[in-house]
Computed example of a mutant assay.
Amino acid sequence: MPINQIAVGRYQDEVTHPGALKAALAEFISTLIFVFAGEGSGMAFAKLTEGGPTSPEGLIAAALAHGFALFVAVSVGANISGGHVNPAVTFGAFLGGNISLLRGILYWIAQLLGAVVACLLLKFTTGGLVTSGFAVSAGVSVWSALVFEIVMTFGLVYTVYATAVDPKKGDLGTIAPLAIGLIVAANILVGGAFTGASMNPAVAFGPAVVSWEWGSHWIYWVGPLIGGGLAGVIYEVIFIAGNTHEQLPTTDY
C-alpha cells in the first residue's frame, strides 16, 4: 500500500456525483437484501423451533442463509458499487488505496441504513418479533471474541481482494461472489457459537438499533475493522503493489 494511493477524494466527485449516489443506493439495497435474509433466517428458525437458533441445526441454517444471501447481494451490486455490503470490506479497500475516504463514508452510511431498514421491515412483517443483536456467548471472554472477529473478517476481506480486487484475478473474478458467500458461511459454522460471527459492523448495527441492545457492541466494530484493514494492507502491499513478475500462463502448469 504505497501511502500515495490513499485518497480523500473530491466532494463533487465522491459524494454528490450521480454515479456516486447510484453506487451508494446499490450498497443500501444489497445490504438490505443481505441483512433481511440473514437476520430473518434466524428469526424464522426461532419461531419454528420455539427459540432454538443456537442448536447445530440453527447454526447450519444461519450459515446457509447468510452464504446464499451474500452471494446474491455481492452479485447484484458488483457492477455498480463493487458489492462491498460491509463496512469492513470498504475499510480494507480504503487502506489498500482502492476507494477514496469520501466514497467510503458514503458507502458506510448506505450500508448502515440498509441494515437498519432491513431490521425494521423484519420487525414489522413478523408482527413485532425481536431482531436480536449480536452477543458474546457465555464462557467466551471479550478478548477471545475480539480475536475471533478479527480472524474471521481477515479471511473474508482477504478473499474479496484475491477474487475481486486483484488485477491478476482473471477468470477467477467470475466466482468472486460465490467465494465470498462461502467464506462467510464457513466462518459462521466456526464462530457462530462463540460470537455470532458478525464479520460485518452493519450486520451487528441494524439489529442493535432496532432492539436497542448494545452489549459488547464495540467488538463487532473493532474486530471486523482491524481484520478487514489488515487484510487490505497485507494483500495490497505483498501481492499487488509488490508483484514484480509475470504470471505463468495456465498452459505452463
Rank of each mutant, 00 (worst) to 15 (best):
M1R: 07
P2H: 15
I3L: 14
Q5L: 13
G9C: 06
R10I: 09
Y11A: 15
H17I: 05
G19I: 07
A20N: 08
A24V: 10
L25A: 15
L25R: 11
A26T: 09
A26E: 05
L32P: 00
F34G: 09
F36C: 03
E39Y: 00
S41Y: 06
A44M: 13
F45K: 09
A46M: 10
K47E: 14
P53M: 10
T54M: 12
G58E: 03
G58W: 01
A61P: 00
A62Q: 11
A63D: 04
A63S: 14
A65W: 02
F68S: 07
F71I: 07
V72T: 10
V72K: 05
A73K: 00
A73F: 01
S75G: 13
A78C: 06
I80W: 01
G82Q: 04
G83M: 08
G83I: 01
V85Q: 02
A88K: 00
F91E: 05
F91S: 10
A93G: 01
G97M: 03
R103C: 06
I105H: 06
L106P: 00
Y107W: 07
A110S: 12
A110I: 05
A110V: 11
L113N: 06
V117R: 07
L120D: 03
K123Y: 06
F124T: 14
G128R: 13
L129R: 13
T131N: 15
S132C: 01
A135R: 13
V136R: 00
A138C: 02
G139Q: 11
W143I: 14
S144C: 03
L146Q: 06
L146W: 07
F148D: 13
I150Q: 06
V151G: 09
M152N: 02
T153N: 14
F154V: 06
V157R: 01
V160R: 02
A162C: 10
V165M: 08
V165L: 07
D166S: 06
G170P: 03
G170E: 13
L172K: 09
L178H: 05
I183V: 15
I183Q: 04
A185T: 11
A185P: 04
A185W: 00
N187I: 02
I188G: 02
I188N: 05
L189I: 13
V190R: 01
G191V: 05
F194V: 07
M199R: 06
N200V: 09
V203W: 07
G206I: 05
G206Y: 08
P207W: 01
V209I: 15
V210L: 12
W212S: 15
E213W: 00
S216A: 14
H217T: 06
W218G: 05
I219S: 09
Y220P: 00
W221T: 05
V222S: 08
G223Y: 06
P224Q: 11
P224E: 11
I226K: 08
I226H: 09
G228V: 01
G229A: 10
L230Q: 04
I234Y: 00
I234Q: 01
E236T: 12
I238H: 09
I240N: 03
G242K: 08
G242P: 02
T244N: 13
H245Y: 12
H245N: 10
E246V: 14
T250C: 08
T250W: 11
T251R: 13
Y253W: 09
